[in-house]
Amino acid sequence: MKSRLLTVCVLIAITAAASSRLVAHHSFAAMYDANKPIRLVGKLTKIEWTNPHSFFYIDVTDAKGRVNSWTIEGAGPGALSRRGFNRGDIDLGDTLIVQGYLAKSGARIVDGRLVTLPDGRIINGGTAGDGGPGSTAAPPAGPRSK
């Protein structure tokens, strides 16, 4: 399972560097706040493979021990599949690290620009053409920096 996952992640990283997901259905700035970058660490509780975006739900434990559910917006299932990231390649309960931007509405929704998978590989989740930070040239995927 782990070697398979590693292979998948490498494929994702290579593909993401060359062709970030696309077809922005809304502009980044209409939904997310570029002045509110955020980093989350949480356990995967649910995945929705739907259009126009997939959504990943993670439980994040705050400093006071409270657990809150966060929604992470990601690429559509076709794009993820093309990158080799298919249903079953990650399991509920896996820990994800997400770096992105908070929704302007104040809801616990994040545009996942960089998502770190359990093996340490990072997916570039930036949407080319959505006007979000760095969307003109998607930054390459790479190893997690600690």
């Binding site: 259905h25 209409a30 939904m31 739907t50 929704a103 302007k104 509405s105």
Partner: peptide, 13 residues
């Protein structure tokens, strides 16, 4: 599954 619809603010940004 346009979850975004309820959270998108007005305007183009």
């Amino acid at each position: 599954n346009n979850i975004d619809a309820a959270h998108i603010g007005p305007g183009a940004g």
